[in-house]
């Protein structure tokens, strides 16, 4: 973010941080719960505990990206990468 950034840019970033950041961290929580090679309950707990750290990192990324569009792109790419990894390495069927 820089001083005097346009209002739409700021609003878009706030939305990306709140909604996009949450969606990405939820994806991480689910992904880890399904993919970690430990018993299911441990995987759920680990994934959920780590998801809040993912959330904070996502918000920092959103506000440091060059533009709101970049910020959104980064979030979507990371989520896509998570799912791709999940599919590639196989996961526990619920």
């Amino acid at each position: 973010m820089k001083r005097g950034a346009s209002r739409t840019d700021t609003l878009s970033r706030v939305a990306a941080a709140a909604v996009g950041g949450y969606a990405l961290s939820a994806t991480a929580a689910v992904g880890l719960a399904l993919v970690l090679p430990v018993p299911r309950a441990d995987a759920v707990l680990t994934g959920t505990m780590l998801s809040f750290i993912v959330y904070v990192c996502a918000v920092l990324w959103v506000f440091s990206a060059a533009s709101a569009t970049r910020a959104w792109t980064g979030l979507v790419l990371s989520a896509a990468l998570l799912w791709a990894g999940l599919l590639a390495f196989g996961y526990r069927t619920p």
Binding site: A26, A29, V30, L34, V44, T48, S51
Partner: peptide
């Protein structure tokens, strides 16, 4: 963050 638990 119920999603990991609820889906697994």
């Amino acid at each position: 963050m119920p999603w990991g638990r609820d889906i697994a």
